[in-house]
């Protein structure tokens, strides 16, 4: 039997934490910042690295953070600790603090966790779950946990058998918001492409586009490539032929390039592994816009800013389910 953890004790520890923080700060006190409950589910072995990411995230999206560190297999285990993330804003007089509850649980006792987490929700604020553990979306133990969330964020990078996974995401969307960081990784690509067609000279020739080719490296089409194709399908309509094809080898698979062509019009964006993308339009101009590889912090920062439905993502998801392998 796992060691019990009591939500009342965690809440009491949190209360004491704030009293101590206030006392240590002297007369200035501390500023408690909280805009949501953020539940992060991660493997215990990756917990320390994730802690660094969420510490940065707290400054942008201050939250009551509940980090669930999952230990696969082994003895039943359940433990908790309460800490605060504090920082002094530049030129500020008062420390800003967010509270963090860390729960470590063996996979076998995960079903005991939702009742604890439910008591830890910050009242009247949204709950967002970021799960870094593939498969938890299907796990019976975690299902009540997912039910708490207004939004669930997953990362499908490297997922094989995409059709099943996409179906899981779409199923999740029926009852809550679901986001995939693979879609978030596309934002800068999409923005770069959209920006080119802000130019009326190119926008007026958009009707010439008849073909879209999305190329990827790897043995199967990564979801990111499918999302991009789905987004282009929605923007350009059924009249445009869209192909997805493998170009080279990579593991895990990755997006390589996108080409829009037709008539005398062509647009190609070739994303290298490095930070710059090469871009050509009508073979007249080329540019090398910044295309840095975004880390989890950057991706989560963007995704946590989206509080409502994302119709562009939903349309791309539908395309991905239809065309995924």
């Amino acid at each position: 039997m796992a060691a019990a953890i009591q939500p009342e004790k965690i809440l009491k520890d949190l209360g004491e934490l704030w009293v101590n923080l206030g006392r240590d700060a002297g007369g200035a006190g501390v500023l408690r910042a909280c805009a949501m409950t953020l539940i992060v589910i991660t493997l215990d072995s990756e917990g320390d690295a994730v802690s660094e990411t969420v510490a940065k995230l707290m400054r942008v999206h201050p939250s009551r953070l509940v980090m669930l560190r999952v230990k696969p297999g082994g003895e039943p285990l359940l433990s908790e600790r309460v800490v605060a993330q504090c920082w002094m804003p530049f030129g500020g007089r008062q420390q800003i603090c967010c509270e963090q509850v860390e729960i470590t649980a063996a996979e076998s006792v995960l079903d005991e966790v939702p009742a604890v987490v439910r008591a830890l929700e910050a009242p009247d604020l949204p709950v967002v779950i970021w799960t870094r553990v593939p498969g938890l979306l299907h796990s019976a133990g975690c299902s009540p946990l997912l039910d708490l969330a207004h939004k669930v964020i997953v990362d499908s990078a490297g997922w094989p058998r995409t059709r099943d996974k996409v179906r899981a995401i779409r199923n999740g969307l029926r009852t809550r918001l679901v986001a995939d960081l693979e879609w978030t990784r596309l934002t800068r690509w999409r923005q770069t492409l959209a920006q080119e067609f802000d130019n009326p000279a190119y926008l007026s020739r958009l009707g010439e586009i008849g073909r879209v080719a999305v190329e990827y490296d790897g043995e199967f089409a990564p979801l990111r490539a499918l999302y991009l194709a789905g987004w282009l399908r929605k923007a350009l309509g059924e009249r445009v032929a869209i192909t997805l094809s493998a170009l080279g080898q990579a593991s895990p698979p990755r997006l390589h390039s996108v080409t829009l062509s037709g008539g005398a019009m062509s647009y190609r964006m070739n994303v290298e592994v490095s930070r710059a993308a090469e871009m050509r339009i009508c073979d007249q101009r080329s540019a090398h816009p910044l295309m840095p590889t975004l880390d989890e912090y950057e991706l989560m920062r963007e995704e946590l800013s989206i509080t409502g439905r994302d119709p562009a993502f939903e349309a791309s998801l539908a395309f991905a389910e239809e065309h995924g392998q």
Binding site: R190, G308, A312
Partner: peptide
């Protein structure tokens, strides 16, 4: 522009 996405 059909590619615009004001949400993001």
């Amino acid at each position: 522009n059909p590619f615009s996405d004001p949400l993001r």
